[in-house]
Design a protein around this nucleic acid. Structure first.
Length: 397
RNA sequence: GGGCGGUUCGCAUAGUGGCAAUCGCAUUUGGCUGUAGACCAAACGCUCGCAAGAGCUACGGGGGUUCGAGUCCCUCACCGCCCA
């Protein structure tokens, strides 16, 4: 018996999209939904109440970060993630698989997980290169802690063990998120290893009592190669996971197509999570192609750095013209920030480096994205998904 | 009155013979997609140019030495400290 239940309420005609309800031990999630990222057991600059008030249903924390600090055993002792952070709702943890990339391959150059078909990757100048903090072998990954330089070794079993201690409702298999620049040969190698690791995660999880309260999601890899994506989806789908993640790297222009390929293969009755994707255009695409859950650091990260979502596209609040703009970020936005504060004030806070800037900006951006996904959900239920998508993207640049 | 020390792009600084000239802040503009990110990058004398680049004007004022001066010399002004 899976600890989670997924019920499809309505399907998008002629496509893979669906609206549903995902029930977890800590509450229900109406899908499609945007999962807020709270890597270190906090959504940066926000209290759990603020996160809940802006409409977020789920928080995703990170195994690797919490293992290093404060230590998963402390979280277990605290009574689990929810209790530790005072979050009354569903939670997830990522496995540390992304850090294999972000502390490994991504450190040598300017590579992003998402590559643009046009743009080329520039190597960093020698003096700016850093030693990679993650090294992979068949059994697992050796990490060097960015906090204190200490050495750690993650295996699939270790990742699951830590995730058991943290105790989120939904946990992910330990995988390797590859670089968008990886060669075909390497992608195969990494993908096959991820499959072997997936199996090990299941085996370890199955043996634990935690499987009764924590759902395990397998992760599809394959990078930018469609035949590998298909193959990975088939293999991961054949394993008894409670849900599925779609991970790894993409070419910006064909995220949709890639997701479609995968979701056509993944079992329809289980939830699908598109890992780390969160630009509005990608959210529409993902939902249409059958994604139920998204998580992404973008809304909160760009918020802290001064970029805000609007229906007409992103704006940089640092731009000189906002110094004297006494209107809210978005006129008809219902978020706390827009209902109470002006761009001029937020611009002032950013320039003055006041931490409240991050809070107001994060509330707005998260509300924008969370609310967008929930509106997309509504549009499926109301049979006007395509109109909504077309209308939104017409204005959003 | 005398003796030191100082005056460099908005602020603060580096620079002792080859410099449109360092670092930081500020300013302007970009970027950020499972968070080593409240971060990173670029521009920042003027004019022309998409650009490579070209031209002009510049290290308190004036004069001098030198192929060449922010850098050396003289002088003036202002600021600071000390002695009378």
């Amino acid at each position: 018996m899976s600890p989670i239940k997924f019920k499809i309420e309505k399907k998008l005609k002629g496509a893979l999209g669906r609206a549903g309800k995902l029930s977890t031990p800590n509450g229900d999630i109406l899908t499609p939904a945007f999962v807020t990222v709270g890597t270190k057991a906090t959504v940066k600059s926000l209290s759990p109440e603020q996160v809940a008030n802006l409409g977020a249903q789920v928080i995703l924390a990170n195994t690797y970060h919490l293992y290093l600090q404060p230590g998963d055993k402390i979280i277990k002792k605290a009574g689990g993630l929810c209790k530790f952070i005072n979050w009354k709702g569903p939670t997830m943890t990522d496995s540390g698989g992304f850090q294999v990339f972000s502390l490994g391959e991504a450190m040598g150059s300017s590579v992003s997980k998402i590559a643009s078909g046009k743009q080329s990757v520039t190597e960093l100048p020698i003096n700016k290169r850093k030693e990679k903090l993650a090294k992979i072998d068949e059994n697992g990954v050796k990490f060097t802690s960015p906090i204190d330089g200490s050495s750690h070794y993650f295996t699939p079993e270790k990742s699951i063990e830590i995730q058991h201690n943290i105790g989120a409702d939904m946990i992910f298999a330990f995988d390797e998120c590859t670089s968008s620049q990886a060669s075909y040969e390497y992608q195969i190698k990494a993908m096959e290893r991820t499959h072997r690791w997936a199996k090990r995660c299941i085996d370890y999880h199955k043996k634990s009592k935690n499987r009764e309260k924590q759902a395990l999601f397998g992760i599809v890899q394959g990078g930018k190669f469609s035949n590998l994506r298909k193959k990975s989806a088939q293999i991961i789908a054949s394993m008894p996971f409670d849900g599925f993640g779609i991970g790894g790297s993409f070419i910006k222009e064909d995220i949709d197509a890639s997701v479609y390929l995968v979701n056509k293969i993944l079992p329809e009755d289980k939830p699908r999570h598109l890992l780390g994707i969160g630009e509005p255009i990608d959210l529409f695409g993902g939902v249409e192609k059958g994604v139920d859950l998204f998580d992404c650091v973008a809304p909160t990260r760009i918020a802290r750095n001064g970029t805000l979502y609007t229906k007409k596209g992103k704006i940089n609040i640092f731009n000189a013209k906002y110094k004297q703009d006494f209107k809210p970020i978005e006129k008809d936005c219902a978020c706390y920030t827009c209902k109470n504060y002006t761009k001029a004030y937020i611009a002032h806070l950013f320039r003055a480096k006041e931490i409240f800037a991050a809070t107001l900006a994060s509330i707005h951006n998260l509300y924008f994205i969370v609310n967008l996904v929930s509106q997309i959900r509504e549009s499926i239920l109301n049979n006007n998904f395509y109109e909504f998508k077309k209308d939104f993207l017409k204005h959003y640049l």
